[in-house]
């Protein structure tokens, strides 16, 4: 309904591939679960009907996007720098997700509070130095205060009051 911004054909290619991954995973899982292709369920169309229907629509959509993108890439002059723009700035978020993936098992190993303190202190200090937003307060001090208040409050509310069993 809303307007579609003038999209780079390579965006269509990338979006189509993203959807394509879901299709591949889905079809593969369907193929290795024999119960989903059986139609031995009486009047019930069975657990395989909707997955097949949805995957078909998704596959057609992904192919349309990829096809459209390819066609336009051949016919239109390419604007430079698309892939760079798509990648720009993703390094820090990627590292952040990786540290979160380490943080979760670390909660079990060293306890909720130590793990959270290390995570937030390190990241807040790094981000504070990067943005130099803290004004007169030094980023380290600010990170310390932020960690103490943030982790303290979350621990108080979730672990003490609500009783979430962590660590």
């Amino acid at each position: 309904m809303s307007s579609v911004p003038g999209r780079d054909p390579r965006n269509q290619l990338a979006a189509g591939s993203f959807l394509g991954f879901w299709c591949l995973a889905g079809w593969w899982s369907l193929a290795v679960t024999p119960a989903l292709s059986s139609d031995d369920y009486g009047v019930d169309p069975g657990p395989g009907l909707l997955p097949r229907l949805v995957l078909t629509i998704l596959t057609v959509g992904a192919l349309l996007l990829i096809g459209n993108g390819m066609r336009r890439m051949l016919s239109e002059p390419a604007e430079p720098g698309f892939w760079d723009r798509l990648r720009r700035g993703t390094l820090v978020p990627a590292i952040f997700v990786a540290t979160l993936a380490i943080y979760v098992p670390a909660i079990d190993l060293i306890g909720y509070v130590p793990a959270s303190v290390i995570l937030t202190l390190a990241w807040m200090t790094f981000l504070g130095y990067r943005s130099r937003e803290g004004g007169p307060i030094s980023p380290l001090l600010q990170a310390g205060a932020g960690t103490a208040i943030g982790v303290g409050l979350i621990y108080l509310i979730f672990v003490h009051l609500i009783g979430v069993p962590v660590g």
């Binding site: 952040f96 807040m124 981000l127 504070g128 943005s131 600010q142 990170a143 943030g150 982790v151 979430v164």
Partner: peptide, 18 residues
């Protein structure tokens, strides 16, 4: 400050989903 807030939100996301 946004970088403090971002980290607190991230902690909330983790404990909230747990």
């Amino acid at each position: 400050p946004s970088h403090v807030l971002l980290l607190i939100i991230a902690l909330l996301c983790v404990i909230g989903s747990y």
